[in-house]
Design a protein around this nucleic acid. Sequence first.
DNA 1: TATTTTCTTTACCGTTCGATCAAGAAAAAC
DNA 2: GTTTTTCTTGATCGAACGGTAAAGAAAATA
Lengths: 195, 195
Amino acid sequence: MARTRKFDENQALDAALRLFWEKGYVATSLQDLEKGTGLNRASIYNAFGNKRSLFKKCLTLYVGRVQAMLEGVIGTATSSREAIKNWLACVIDFQFNQETPSGCLVILSALERHQHDRETREIVTALFRREQEVIQKVLEEGVQRGEFPADFDCVGVAWAITSATSGMVVLSMADLPVSALQEVFRSTMRLLDGK
Amino acid sequence: MARTRKFDENQALDAALRLFWEKGYVATSLQDLEKGTGLNRASIYNAFGNKRSLFKKCLTLYVGRVQAMLEGVIGTATSSREAIKNWLACVIDFQFNQETPSGCLVILSALERHQHDRETREIVTALFRREQEVIQKVLEEGVQRGEFPADFDCVGVAWAITSATSGMVVLSMADLPVSALQEVFRSTMRLLDGK
DNA sequence: TATTTTCTTTACCGTTCGATCAAGAAAAAC
DNA sequence: GTTTTTCTTGATCGAACGGTAAAGAAAATA
């Protein structure tokens, strides 16, 4: 009864995500999006609405992936300590992975806050909260398992680790070498040793 | 022999800095700059060159101030521990200070890296390096003073603290409450306790 | 195969972008 | 007070911006 869509919507979304990830919301023009997705301008509007809603779809997609990666890495570890170690290593790998852009769309969006509506900002806030919660939970499990002392500050350390992941991303975006991130990594891990 | 400038160049630079600080380089238009500085467009070009060079002047001004604040806070402390404590507290205060925008122009510029030339990116990199150096130095003084054990990892902890300051700024931009930053603060301070 | 419906293409909309230029205004030097 | 020089103003530039409308192309139904 009707014509089918020629392009793969997920594929186009992926391409758009990559662009926003690299240049941010404002600096990514519709011209960029046309070239990146291979779609015509009107096709983009037809499929995704306007630039704002396309961005929001990309951000949601990205957040979902990061969260899946976070929970995957944390969930498959055999100890609390290993979980944190793997997560921090994962963040570093991700920054220097050649297949994906460096940086982080969520952090970028956090800093572009003036450009976005409340709903978008809440997506950003939620990811950080979620990261802290997941880490806190794995630390609490570590306490129960006897890996950490009973009075271990799970809340505070979880926030510190969450902060450290953002900090590492910023450092890598500021052209600091891997070694700097590794120093952050090692020192952050030491938060799991003390009292 | 000639007419004198009516406006205060430093004052205009301050206004421009504030705009870039709030919205970033791309999102700040010349219209914004005209309104913010109170200057006519051509006066801006006459005084500061183009948008790029105006931005660079603002960034340099900002970096100088942050560095002065860093060195001031660290330099006036009576112990290594107190120096770090004051610096972290200073960063938190700064984020919630109502008189200045939240966020950080340097971090924003790091994430907008694709917009800037190498010289600008190097200014950004340099500030992070400088922050780490200053902190490392004060830690090393702490070791000599017997505040920390002889094998204390000054390099790594300095990077962790540098990362923590960026992390806290990101968290505050992501609308996390002060309490979250304070948790990062407390946990980061604990890096000075362990072995 | 004819029809219907959706997707795609092309051209274009008004607006805003960064940047410039020529004319007018004002202060210092003589 | 005249001259000289710089600063300021207002108008305007071409390009790029996000977004849209109408015509053409193509696939699924009948």
